[in-house]
Amino acid sequence: MAKSISTGIGQPALRTISAAAALAAATALLTGCGSGGAAKVDASPSPSVASSAPPSADPTAAASAAVLTAYRGMWAEEVKAFASGSLKDVNLEQYAGDKALADIKASAVYYQDNNQVFKGEPKLAPKVTAIDLSTTPNRATVEDCVDASNFLPVDKATGTPAKITDANRPYVQTSSVRIYAGRWVVMESTINRDKTC
């Protein structure tokens, strides 16, 4: 998400083309088991057994799931914007901020000005590669293999595919995510076309 944005297909401006995918990452829920039955009172005193509380969820795992939810949410809103050719009714600010938000909006304006919309959806495979819950704000890094071969710009009026200049192949996108206003927000995304995935 820097420089010119590209769908991995060669259009100037679609860097973080977010989303497509509007698929949120699933978190594992821990469930505790309770044992039923009435307690029997013993005539002779016996040592009391402290009830052990179920172990709390791993904070790193929970935070990583929330990071991926924010990342996929950004992509979902981005795809919505590019598919409709408008930023109206798109909630990008919920998931993207700073440079990531500015880049997506700039790309959306570029395609609007060229009367282009996107068809299809990108395929995503994001994973959290680093997370730091000891800093304020908390920070994380997401690395994704973005396949935009089925997420392509077309002429809004005719549906004619737009010409693309870049090799249309999967590319690696690295995103910086941090806590902002009490939630995880993608702040910047960069594309590394030299790295295959």
Rank of each mutant, 00 (worst) to 15 (best):
A148W: 07
N115F: 02
A50P: 06
G34A: 04
G159C: 03
A162N: 04
A66K: 12
C33G: 02
S149Y: 04
A43C: 08
R193S: 13
P122Q: 08
L87P: 05
T31L: 15
S4K: 04
K156Q: 12
P55M: 11
A62S: 14
I17D: 07
D155I: 01
G10D: 12
L124W: 08
S64I: 00
V109L: 14
A81G: 10
N192E: 05
K127N: 06
L23R: 12
T60G: 00
T158Q: 11
I17N: 13
F118E: 02
P47D: 07
V79C: 14
G85Y: 05
S48K: 15
T190N: 12
T31Y: 05
P122H: 03
K80A: 15
R139T: 13
P47N: 09
S46K: 11
A66P: 02
D166P: 01
V128A: 06
G32P: 00
G37W: 01
V90E: 07
Y110K: 14
F151R: 07
V146W: 09
T16E: 05
W184S: 06
N150W: 03
F82H: 15
Q112A: 13
A38R: 13
K99N: 05
K119R: 15
Y71S: 08
M187P: 00
F151Q: 06
P137G: 01
I17V: 08
E78N: 10
P55T: 11
L14I: 10
Q11V: 12
A106R: 09
T141G: 01
Y171S: 03
S149G: 08
D58Y: 03
P47E: 09
A100F: 14
S64Y: 00
K99A: 13
S64T: 08
G8R: 04
T174I: 13
V172I: 14
P45F: 06
A19W: 07
T160R: 15
V79D: 10
T135E: 06
G159L: 03
K99Q: 11
Q94L: 04
K163D: 07
R72T: 07
V142K: 12
A50H: 10
R15Q: 04
A19H: 06
T136I: 03
A24D: 06
S107W: 02
K80L: 13
A20T: 07
S64K: 15
P54N: 06
A81D: 07
A13K: 10
S64W: 00
K119I: 14
L101R: 08
P47S: 13
S56M: 03
A57F: 04
R169C: 00
K40T: 06
Y110T: 13
A157M: 01
E143N: 14
T129I: 14
Q173G: 14
S35R: 15
L87A: 12
A63G: 03
E93C: 00
V49G: 08
A140Y: 02
A130M: 01
Y171L: 09
A20G: 14
I104P: 02
P59T: 07
D194S: 13
Y111R: 03
T7W: 07
S134V: 03
